[in-house]
Design a protein around this nucleic acid. Sequence first.
DNA 1: TCTGTGTACTAAAACACTTCATACAGTTTT
DNA 2: AAAACTGTATGAAGTGTTTTAGTACACAGA
Lengths: 123, 123
Amino acid sequence: MLNLDYRDARPIYEQVKDGLRRLMITGVIREGEKLPSVRSMASALAINPNTIQRAYEALEGEGYLYSVPGKGSFAAPHTGVDEGRRRQLFQVFDQAAAELLFLGVPGQTLRDRIGEREGGGKQ
Amino acid sequence: MLNLDYRDARPIYEQVKDGLRRLMITGVIREGEKLPSVRSMASALAINPNTIQRAYEALEGEGYLYSVPGKGSFAAPHTGVDEGRRRQLFQVFDQAAAELLFLGVPGQTLRDRIGEREGGGKQ
DNA sequence: TCTGTGTACTAAAACACTTCATACAGTTTT
DNA sequence: AAAACTGTATGAAGTGTTTTAGTACACAGA
């Protein structure tokens, strides 16, 4: 389900966190879907359960999942994602755009990279 | 010229690096302009010269400045910025856009945030 | 009851990173 | 030539973070 890169400078819990978030964004993991338990995922990746727990805890703080003691952890609906995460994303987006423009990339080029979400009305 | 925040989790050399890059992007520091020497900037910020040196070294690696032993460090022309930095920026841009779209932000909203650069044709 | 789940806490070890002190080498100015 | 400036290199100390290990508790479901 996830790949860890020990040569990567990023800590493991962060790789897990970002990896899971990406799976949700790309639709591989759908809303309400049950995630692997901290223990099973830890043994699958051959790491300590506490490390997975830390990743889950961070994602829950962002609103990407919710955990129920005794039951498990589940992907949260998009609407539940934290406002702080949204603000952070806008800031990253704006700063990257500003620097790319500075480097001479035409604004039209950047606009063309933004793929619209199909079926947005259906949702 | 720059503000350091010791409560920030980001290391000092990174704050210096990002701060200087931002000054160049916003046009406060212009192409070819001489930057403060590592020692003068270090004493101005009350930190070790090596810390400034590290920031300068990183920016030189990105192509944002060039240093000449005995003379000083100077802001490089936009065209000299490293291709790796460009690729990194595009990746950050794309990922942020993808997640914002996933969270329900309309593509049009994102496109509207991209301010065009005046005089782009002059370049 | 037993198994599987999330959660909490402490301790420790390992590791990496950041920062500093010092010294060296080149350029410009006096 | 000397002095004062510049960037550069190296090693060591300091500090924090990451990860693991171990133990324990509470809840849900078969």
